[in-house]
């Protein structure tokens, strides 16, 4: 799992590449939480899932945990460009109901 992040105003844009599971979810959690702790102005989180080719309930749990943190700051967590198999898992879990999915990061940023 490779994770890249950049700050765009009040949003932290996180791009992941690889598989988000029991092994890699803690890496994602640690990196995002460090950014949120360092930059208090960050109140929104955009996760670009276009290069995530596998996710299971451990990965979803890590995303849900970040959602709760962002909600505490009064912000939004938006998802970008999930692959079909990832999108299906998001729908099965119901996370798609609380985390809107956008076709690209720019459109997600416009939604904030």
């Amino acid at each position: 799992m490779e994770i890249y992040h950049q700050r765009r105003g009040t949003a932290l844009l996180v791009t992941m590449r690889g598989e988000l599971d029991l092994l890699t979810a803690p890496v994602f959690r640690t990196q995002v939480d460090q950014e949120l702790e360092t930059y208090e102005r960050l109140s929104n989180l955009i996760l670009d899932l276009s290069k995530v080719d596998f996710i299971d309930s451990s990965g979803l749990g890590a995303i849900l945990g970040r959602y709760k943190r962002i909600r505490e700051r009064g912000g939004k967590l938006l998802l970008v460009n999930a692959q079909p198999q990832v999108q299906k898992i998001l729908e099965l879990s119901g996370l798609d109901k609380i985390m809107p999915l956008f076709p690209d990061a720019e459109r997600a940023l416009e939604h904030l």
Binding site: S57, G61, L92
Partner: peptide, 10 residues
């Protein structure tokens, strides 16, 4: 702790 309880559901 950050578990969704969905493993067996999936």
């Amino acid at each position: 702790e950050e578990r969704m309880g969905l493993g067996l559901v999936f």
